[in-house]
Nucleic acid binder design. Structure first.
Length: 262
DNA sequence: ATGGTCGCGTAGCGA
């Protein structure tokens, strides 16, 4: 059976609610990973999302960060936060096991730190956070499950994943150390779905609100779906819902959807 | 041109 898994940095679910509901309806994914919901669990618009046929798991935070997973199938387990998180109060990781018709699937919604400016504790936090993600992803790989770790990685993997790579050269999203974290996940055995299904240049998922970035197509590809071998073997395609950036009150990110046969 | 624009929350930070 087809199983679609989307990821979308919504940039505040409350500020975005009418837009988000329209986008979610159009994307119509079985599972949706959301980032930057920017609200505590109790304030998440659960009823509105549930009325679309989704079960909801949240790992919320006031003002900043916050991730969620929406699923048309039953959510069997919820695990907020990465291991080794003592002293880290950012809500950036939520993992669920979902009872898909083809069998259980493990899905994680990740919101990696931005890390700017380079050379500060923000950048070292970004790298250390990725190291914790990579260590956890390695443990998940040993389970030999259908597993997808999807979200806003805040990493531009290649020059061709930016409209103007030179303008990102000094940015935390485009540092060799950051790209090394993306490659480390792939080197573990995870497959980045976009690269497996398409890989073509200039397919962007983020356009800044500033300086007419959308109008000029000054975009970058920073939202990724990493699939375990058991999931990657079932990948049938990837699509980017570019139209979402042209809506009223858009997020600065658009959804990217992996299609699987499971 | 080192700007611009959002969201949160109501000043200034984060992105």
């Amino acid at each position: 059976m087809p199983l679609s898994i989307a990821t979308w940095n919504v940039n505040s679910i409350l500020a975005r609610l009418p837009t988000a509901l329209a986008v979610l309806k159009h994307v119509d994914a079985d599972i949706v990973c959301l980032q930057e919901i920017k609200c505590e669990d109790a304030r998440f618009p659960r009823l509105e999302i549930e009325s679309m046929g989704y079960n909801v798991a949240t790992h919320g935070q006031k003002t900043y960060n916050g991730v969620a997973i929406l699923s048309k199938h039953r959510i069997e387990e919820e695990a907020p936060g990465l291991p080794e998180g003592e002293g880290d109060d950012h809500a950036r990781y939520l993992e669920c096991v979902i009872a898909a018709p083809g069998g259980p699937v493990r899905v994680a919604s990740v919101y990696a730190p931005n890390g700017n400016p380079v050379g500060t504790e923000k950048f070292s936090y970004k790298l250390a956070w990725h190291d914790r993600l990579i260590a956890h992803a390695e443990r998940l790989l040993a389970l030999e499950e259908f597993c997808v770790i999807a979200g806003d990685y805040n990493i531009i993997p290649r020059d061709v994943d930016a409209d103007d790579p030179a303008s990102w050269r000094g940015d935390a999203l485009f540092q060799p150390e950051s790209i090394g974290k993306y490659r480390a996940l792939a080197n573990l055995g995870y497959v980045e779905c976009f690269m497996q299904a398409d890989g073509r240049p200039r397919q962007f998922t983020f356009w800044d609100y500033q300086a007419g970035a959308w109008r000029r197509d000054h975009g970058i590809r920073i939202d990724h779906l990493f699939a375990s071998p058991q999931a990657a073997d079932r990948l049938t395609g990837v699509s980017i819902h570019r139209d979402a950036r042209a809506m009223d009150k858009p997020s600065d990110h658009v959804p990217i959807i992996g299609a699987f046969d499971w």
